[in-house]
């Protein structure tokens, strides 16, 4: 089986079959990270470039490890130390990299659509590691993988995503993916942080967190970006935590044992309490699964006869 495109730019429009293929493939790659010798020769000799215009620990390290465990050569470019500081454009940067015969370019950028812009102009496979407020497909894939691993399936379950949905590419990718796989998605947050029209994406909107998480199988907490307070989107961190934070008492009121997720990095005591994060969440499993999912994506994108590029 193959993916239908040379790139992974977003979950929107992906068929359930394709998502399932990635998740199934990721399951076998997870084993590689459990072995003593965490390496397979699958992408030997391939060149993978991490082109990150925004800061990242988790995602970048995850992609780097995924590539290295597949025996690829991985280069990290963080633009703060590159010629981008001299004003080099996105396209020039990418074309110069491709001139060095890259195979896969992984892009994180603050502009929505930047990865697609590059994908149309480059022969390399482009993977979107997060673009603006648009999508973060590998995060949604690892989230779905984690949910499927813990609950056994994705169709028919209910997932509540809580937090700053308006500015969250993680939320968007997850909504596309979870609905495609047959899950029911609820979004919850202060009205200032819920984009109008999000119901059209298939998500049910809640402004009361207890209602939103009641009976949910999985609760996904999003990071509150504290800068948004300066923009007047919420009155204060303590009030936010009281209304939309996940603490032990609120988790108990869910009514069943739901899995608790967070894409990281988390603000302890704000959107999630330390107790819940440390004792009742699958946050670290998400990180482990992230490497496996990214290995699967690189594997599926890298094959294929040169003749059909």
């Amino acid at each position: 089986m193959a993916l239908s495109s040379k790139d992974l730019l977003g979950i929107k429009g992906m068929a359930a079959d394709e998502i399932k293929l990635i998740l199934d493939t990721a399951a076998t790659f997870k084993d590689v990270s459990e072995r003593d010798i965490k390496k397979v020769p699958t992408l030997r000799g391939k060149t993978v470039i991490n082109l990150f215009y925004e800061a990242s620990t988790r995602t970048r390290t995850s992609f780097e490890l995924a590539g290295k465990r597949l025996s690829a050569d991985v280069i990290n470019i963080s633009t703060s130390t590159s010629s981008v500081t001299k004003g080099e454009t996105l396209l020039d940067t990418a074309q110069n990299i491709e001139a060095m015969k890259s195979d896969i370019i992984i892009v994180r950028h603050s502009c929505s659509g930047a990865p697609e812009y590059l994908a149309k102009r480059l022969k390399s496979s482009v993977i979107n590691a997060g673009d603006g407020f648009h999508e973060h497909p590998t995060q949604a894939l690892l989230d779905m993988f984690t949910i499927r691993e813990k609950l056994g399936r994705l169709d028919g379950i209910t997932v509540a995503i809580v937090g700053d949905i308006l500015h969250s590419r993680v939320a968007r990718s997850n909504i596309y993916g979870l609905t495609a796989m047959g899950a029911a998605v609820r979004v919850c947050g202060p009205p200032t942080m819920i984009p109008p029209g999000i119901e059209k994406m298939g998500a049910k909107v809640f402004f009361d967190m207890d209602e939103a998480v009641k009976g949910a199988d999985a609760v996904m907490m999003l990071r509150l970006q504290l800068e948004r307070q300066a923009a007047g989107l919420f009155p204060g961190v303590r009030e936010y935590a009281r209304l939309f934070g996940l603490n032990r008492a609120r988790l108990d009121r869910v009514g069943k044992s739901a899995i608790v997720m967070h894409p990281g990095p988390m603000n302890r005591g704000v959107e999630i309490s330390s107790d819940v994060a440390d004792n009742s969440s699958v946050i670290l499993d998400q990180v482990t699964n992230g490497v496996a999912v990214r290995m699967a994506v690189m594997f599926l994108l890298s094959g294929g006869s040169k003749a059909e590029a």
């Binding site: 089986m1 193959a2 293929l21 199934d24 493939t25 076998t28 790659f29 084993d31 590689v32 397979v40 020769p41 699958t42 597949l70 594997f299 599926l300 890298s302 094959g303 294929g304 006869s305 040169k306 059909e308």
Partner: peptide, 22 residues
């Protein structure tokens, strides 16, 4: 043992085989 990740023809196949369990 699944040998998909060690195949010598991954570059020339139209699509990647799905690895099974090792």
């Amino acid at each position: 043992l699944d040998i998909t990740m060690y195949r010598d023809d991954l570059d020339t196949r139209k699509s990647q085989p799905v690895p099974q369990a090792t």
